[in-house]
Amino acid sequence: MTDSQRRQRILALTPWERLAEHWERLGIRPGYRCVRGPEVGMAMVRGRMGGTGRAFNLGEMTLTRASVQLTDEVVPDAPLGHGWVKGRHARHAELIALVDACAQRGDWAVAIDEGLVAPLDAALAVERDAHGRQAAATRVDFFTLVRGE
């Protein structure tokens, strides 16, 4: 998984309020314009039986996408960023696209990875661990049950 893919995954999984709060704290305020969207559409979700079987169409999910271009660049090929998020949250997709565009600038990339992506990834890991412990607490080990004969 590339840095860009990892960043996109973390930003899409992070709740909007937390992402916006961390972005504000980072202090990067570029000018930008929306090139595409935000647009709400549908995406086909595919599944596999047992994780390894043949792929099948599970159903559709709502998806919002956006593309932005930085406008405070003096070069003709200003960075273009893209963002996708499940659901219908247009501002979330637009902010992900903005972060993606800003991360393409060398002077902002390190600040974004260390000051935004790393803390959000750590918060997601804590939540994942808490959900895992909660699910593990409800686990039933059927091999410990004794049949009465």
Rank of each mutant, 00 (worst) to 15 (best):
R88V: 09
V35I: 10
G31D: 12
L11D: 01
M61W: 00
W16Y: 14
D100H: 08
A55F: 04
R36G: 07
Q104S: 04
A122R: 11
L26Y: 07
R54H: 12
R18H: 10
D141S: 08
L13N: 07
G132E: 13
A103R: 11
L116S: 04
V110R: 15
M61P: 01
T138A: 15
A78G: 12
P76Q: 10
P76G: 08
G148D: 10
V140W: 13
R139M: 11
A122S: 07
G83W: 00
R33H: 10
T62W: 06
T144C: 06
G50P: 04
A43E: 10
T52G: 06
I96Y: 03
E24Y: 07
H131F: 03
H82A: 05
W84A: 08
M49D: 15
A136K: 05
A103G: 10
G81L: 03
A109P: 03
D141C: 11
G37S: 07
A125N: 04
A137K: 13
P30D: 12
H22Q: 12
F142G: 07
A118F: 06
A125I: 04
N57D: 12
M42Q: 13
D113Y: 09
V40Y: 00
D113W: 09
M44A: 14
R91P: 08
M61D: 01
L98M: 11
V126K: 12
R133W: 03
A130R: 05
D113M: 11
R48V: 05
S4V: 13
E149D: 14
V35A: 02
D129E: 12
N57M: 07
V146M: 10
A118C: 00
D141W: 06
T2F: 05
M1T: 11
E127Q: 09
L58A: 15
F143N: 08
R91S: 15
L98K: 05
Q104W: 01
R25I: 06
G47C: 08
V110D: 14
R88W: 00
V75Q: 09
L124N: 01
V74T: 15
P30G: 12
G81A: 05
R7Y: 02
V140M: 13
N57P: 01
A122M: 08
A90W: 01
P119C: 12
I96Q: 04
L58C: 08
S4H: 06
D129C: 00
A103D: 06
Q5C: 08
P38K: 07
D107N: 14
L98Q: 06
T138Y: 11
R25L: 10
L58M: 12
M61R: 02
E149F: 14
D107R: 15
L80P: 03
L124I: 04
V99S: 07
L70E: 08
E39H: 09
G50K: 08
P15A: 11
L70I: 15
S67V: 15
E21A: 13
H22Y: 05
V140I: 13
L63G: 02
R105V: 02
V40D: 00
A135C: 07
A12L: 04
P79H: 05
V140E: 10
V110S: 14
